[in-house]
Design a protein around this nucleic acid. Structure first.
Lengths: 229, 229
DNA sequence: TCAAAAGTGTTGTTTATACACCCATGT
DNA sequence: ACATGGGTGTATAAACAACACTTTTGA
């Protein structure tokens, strides 16, 4: 679905003036060792050459926005079929582009273990903890802030966490993911009660031994589709 | 704030190919006589000439997205300083535009009494009840669906209703606005309790006579800024 | 005096929070 | 045997939902 309506006053407007650049970028989150991280790319050209930025690129002809975001995600992580949602569209900055630039932002959640970062010399990528970000290009800091706020509120009422965990996981792992993202500890008993009451988890009957202690029951998400509970 | 990051593979891409058209449109809602309405415009050119559509137009050079949405809103309603929020960006359709089209959608809430529709022959506008929409251009039906879902959820936890009411209003008027938008009746006592408990309303001490019955107390919003309660 | 909307409290139910101990395992 | 994380229940508080009658006015 999409839309275009020319208003009365600029119906005939010729397409000769410099048109704005249209870019799509993807904020890719993961949780690794109970730490929320984001994938950044080091820019190989001006502006902001050498600085870290959120990965993105031009929208290609004939491509939908979702397709462009998926393409970017696959290029940078190799994963597909994860949670991917449109975040916001930014129209100010990049000021360096004459004619202006419009950037449609997405955010994605990936299971760290299923990602393989491409090896390359230019435009290298790396995971950065949200607690220790390098200086970022453009004002990507505020974009990350916005994405994080959105992610946190989504965690409260959806099953998006499915996309950050392997197929089978323990309730403690699930809790660790929540705590990493919300940035605060939650009560174990209340957390389990709430999650199980939601009915989005299915016990597998299997257990997993993780150390010198009682084995943990393994669960799986009843649905791996985004569900607005 | 905004963003643009060229990925490695298309850093040098020449700007010669047909660039996508960038348009901004605004879903303008109002409540009139306890009925939720949307402002539509009748298209004067192909595609979909003669059909009703959500008002919008090209993004102009040097303009931010918010500025473009505000400009459109003022052009069509004369009002300013109302609730205006970015909704979603659509990238598929208009298929008729070669090079593609990207449309950034906004939604706005206006007090019906402060609107004056422009009088003109071409591209006329009119309010339509959401209960009896004409056939729409592009697939604006699904855009309206989306906007309505967003509006409903916003009503639950924000003060956006301030933008749909005159400065002074009664609790019954406020309730009528909620019921029109949510599409269902709510309990009067619980509604009043909840609204007053939120602390976003201020009693004015004045009353208003509306008919052959007891006069109603007038309230005003403590803040006319968007507040995420 | 009648019709019509304004205004007002209580009770029961559901949901969220706070909090501490035993269990199964590896070393 | 001990250290480690896995697993479990209860009591209190807060939020929400259901429900009916009296008040003030204009006609």
């Amino acid at each position: 679905m999409a839309h275009k309506t020319d208003g009365p006053e600029h119906a005939p407007l010729p397409a000769t003036k410099r048109a704005p650049i249209v870019a799509v970028f993807v904020v890719i989150f993961t949780v690794e060792e109970s730490d929320l991280k984001v994938l950044l790319i080091r820019r190989g050209v001006a502006p902001y050459e050498g600085q870290w930025a959120i990965p993105g690129g031009r929208l290609q002809t004939g491509e939908t926005l979702d397709e462009a975001a998926t393409r970017k995600l696959v290029e940078e992580t190799g994963v597909r079929d994860v949670y991917l949602e449109q975040l916001y569209t930014f129209g100010d900055l990049d000021r360096s582009a004459e004619g202006g630039a419009v950037a449609i932002g997405y955010f994605a959640l990936v299971d760290h273990d299923s990602v393989s970062l491409p090896r390359r010399e230019e435009w290298p990528t790396a995971w950065y903890s949200l607690k220790s970000l390098p200086p970022l290009a453009f004002d990507n800091e505020s974009v990350l802030d916005y994405a994080l706020r959105r992610l946190r509120s989504k965690m409260e009422y959806t099953n998006v966490a499915y996309s950050l965990l392997p197929q089978y996981f323990t309730l403690s792992q699930l809790q660790a993911v929540y705590e990493s993202i919300l940035g605060k500890e939650v009560d174990k008993r209340n957390f389990r009660k709430r999650m199980l009451a939601l009915g989005i988890l299915r016990p597998t009957g299997r257990t997993m031994v993780l150390g010198a202690h009682r084995p943990a029951k393994l669960y799986t998400f009843a649905s791996r589709q985004p569900t607005a509970i």
